[in-house]
Design a protein around this nucleic acid. Structure first.
Lengths: 210, 210
DNA sequence: TTGTCATCTGTCATCGACTGACATAGATTA
DNA sequence: TAATCTATGTCAGTCGATGACAGATGACAA
């Protein structure tokens, strides 16, 4: 049975409606000057309900991170254990890209809007990075396991993950000017290659320090 | 004349008193459950006044970032123009370290407290990283200028800065267990060396793409 | 010393994000 | 249909943050 109940469908519809309403309002009047009350108003739900769908106003903007993180963790798990950590991470990044490339027009539109909003609100870029930091902790655990090291003491595990996430972020943010989705994903792919070229072969295979 | 007026001295005293009161309260009862009212109460000022010293509750924790950023920008400016961008950045990082090593016992104590607080509050680590993101934008401008590139389009400039900041952050956060200040700075120095070893010679000298 | 001026501070009012508690309307299942 | 589950609205309240105004206090010149 693929049929999800009416309730489920309704919820998903409300969630997307809130997201779309918010993105549009943010673009029209700016992030700060848009209140939760307004967003809820457009979708015709109470502000209280908004917070049942999104834990915070910021969460709206970080919505996509959840998805990306999920893909990265899944991909990482499916990569052969003997693949070097950074290489595995780069595959995970590419998995995120190919997911983006396969997105529906609606999803693409949301993504492009989000990108503009982030661009105009440095504070949000910060939040976005902050969200990335939490992902990093989780990824570092996985990578440390791969390296047979302890995530609490092996700095290289953390550095590997940090470099990988930096790569993703730089690809996402820069260049700032608008573009179509394919343009952006191509650009991100370039950034990944750039990062791969920049690092010494085998740099991520050094044995744990202790 | 080095004498700063009574007013100035008083202000500095209040600022530090607020900072210390806050750090202690955060450690005692946790960040979230400490209110601005409490912090202000300890120092015996009104909550309104608190916000005249620190723009937000978060700002307390990011206090040190301001200082670090300042040092990095200054150092960067003083490095020879023909030094490669990443090398210059690594010198900037080391400048931050040596500044930390030269800090007074009070400053060291604050730093260690802060580190414990950040460790216990993942959300704050996020904020901290977010603050770093703003620094990154500024640094990227400087590095792009050095590379004779446009910060808006040259991804490598951003990647260089992102890698450098990642290095600083990993050194700061990991390993999580406590330690004395010298132990921590040594550890951070190791991370810097690790990063330098990991990158291809001349990786940061590739000409701008466009 | 005194009076003026700039600045710091407290008080008050207010907004907006967010949360817990409770009641109800609607969907689900037996 | 009845019993049950759950999503939503309402209400009240906390806390972070900001603007406006007035009083206190240090800075400085006459």
């Amino acid at each position: 049975m693929t049929t999800v109940g009416l309730r489920e469908r309704k919820k998903e519809k409300t969630r997307l409606a809130l997201l779309d309403a918010a993105l549009d309002l943010f673009l029209e009047q700016g992030y700060e000057s848009t209140t939760v009350e307004q967003i809820a108003g457009v979708v015709d739900v109470s502000p209280r309900t908004f917070f049942r769908y999104f834990t915070s106003k910021d969460h709206l903007v970080l919505w996509f991170h959840d998805h990306g993180e999920e893909i990265m963790l899944e991909t990482l798990e499916s990569r052969p254990q003997d693949e070097s950590p950074f290489t595995a991470l780069m595959h995970a990044l590419r998995a995120v890209l190919s997911d983006m490339e396969g997105s529906t027009p609606e999803e693409s539109a949301r993504f492009l809007k989000l990108r503009r909003i982030l661009d105009e609100n440095p504070r949000l870029i910060g939040q976005s990075v902050a969200r990335g930091a939490q992902t990093e902790r989780r990824l570092a655990e996985v990578i440390a396991a791969r390296r047979g090291a302890d995530a609490d003491t092996d700095q290289l595990s953390h550095l590997i993950v940090a470099f990988a996430m930096s790569t993703l972020r730089v690809g996402f943010e820069c260049p700032r000017r608008d573009g179509t989705l394919p343009e952006i994903t191509n650009r991100m792919a370039e950034t990944i290659e750039l990062a791969e070229r920049s690092l010494q072969p085998g740099w991520d295979l050094e044995p744990p320090a202790r």
